[in-house]
Amino acid sequence: MEHTLTRDAKKALATIYKAYKSRRASGEAKSSAVYFDTESHDATAIDAAVSDSLAELSNAKYVKTDICGNYTLTDSGIIFMENLPVGTIKEWLSFSAQFIP
């Protein structure tokens, strides 16, 4: 079942997925590439746009959050993103840029 997401949540999911893909490309194991620890000072993990959308992404089952604010990109989230055209992902990532003066 596909969930409808707000633009902010789409951007957050695209940001998380981009970081995941970068980690995998650099040889990181999937089990660690999907995990985002807010204590690690990872720019993606502590990004305000991402943290503001975690509840929505969690409700959609695209991420799983823990009590400390850390989160894991789920297989559902990965599958959802893998089935999107690359142009759509780029559009989601550039959405907020149009509002910066």
Rank of each mutant, 00 (worst) to 15 (best):
Ala45Thr: 09
Asn83Ala: 13
Lys11Gly: 02
Glu39His: 09
Ser58Asn: 09
Asp75Cys: 11
Gly87Tyr: 06
Phe99Asp: 15
Leu57Met: 13
Ala25Glu: 15
Asp8Tyr: 12
Cys68Lys: 15
Asp47Gln: 10
Thr4Tyr: 08
Ala12Arg: 00
Ala97His: 14
Lys10Asp: 01
Lys64Glu: 11
Lys30Cys: 00
Ala45Lys: 07
Ala55Arg: 09
Ser40Arg: 15
Asp47Lys: 13
Asn83His: 11
Asp52Ile: 04
Leu73Cys: 03
Gly87Arg: 11
Val50Ala: 04
Ala14Leu: 06
Asp8Phe: 09
Glu2Asp: 09
Ile16Cys: 09
Ala60Gln: 06
Leu57Trp: 05
Leu13Lys: 05
Ser94Thr: 14
Tyr17Ala: 01
Glu2Pro: 08
Leu5Tyr: 06
Leu57Gly: 03
Gly77Tyr: 10
Ile89Leu: 08
Arg23Gly: 02
Glu2Met: 07
Asn59Ser: 07
Ala49Trp: 12
Thr38Gln: 10
Ala49Cys: 07
Thr15Ser: 15
Gln98Phe: 07
Thr6Cys: 02
Ser22Gln: 11
Glu28Thr: 10
Ile16Pro: 01
Ile100Gln: 02
Ser40Asp: 09
Tyr62Thr: 06
Ile46Ser: 04
Cys68Pro: 01
Gly69Leu: 08
Ala60Tyr: 00
Trp92Ser: 02
Gly27Tyr: 07
Thr38Lys: 10
Asp66Ser: 00
Ser58His: 06
Tyr71Ile: 05
Leu73Arg: 02
Lys61His: 14
Val34Asn: 00
Leu84Asp: 00
Tyr62Lys: 05
Leu13Gln: 04
Asp66Leu: 00
Leu54Gly: 00
Thr15Tyr: 03
Phe95Asn: 06
Leu5Trp: 05
Lys90His: 11
Thr38Tyr: 09
Ser76Cys: 15
Leu93Gln: 08
Ala14Glu: 00
Tyr71Cys: 08
Glu91Asp: 13
Gly77Asn: 05
Phe99Val: 08
Ala97Lys: 11
Ile89Val: 12
Lys18Asp: 14
Tyr20Asp: 02
Ser76Val: 15
Lys18Gly: 05
Leu57Thr: 05
Val34His: 04
Arg7Glu: 15
Tyr35Val: 14
Phe95Tyr: 14
Glu82Ser: 11
Phe95Lys: 03
Val63Thr: 14
Ala43His: 15
Glu2Asn: 13
Ala48Glu: 13
Phe95Met: 09
Tyr17Ile: 08
Asp42Ser: 01
Lys11Thr: 09
Ala9Lys: 03
Ile16Lys: 06
Ala12Tyr: 04
His3Cys: 03
Ala25Thr: 13
Tyr35Cys: 01
Ser22Met: 10
Ala19Pro: 00
Pro85Cys: 05
Thr72Ile: 07
Lys18Phe: 12
Ala55Gln: 05
Ser22Val: 10
His3Met: 09
Asp52Cys: 01
Val50Trp: 07
Ser51Gln: 12
Asp47His: 13
Ile100Pro: 04
Leu5Val: 03
Leu93Pro: 04
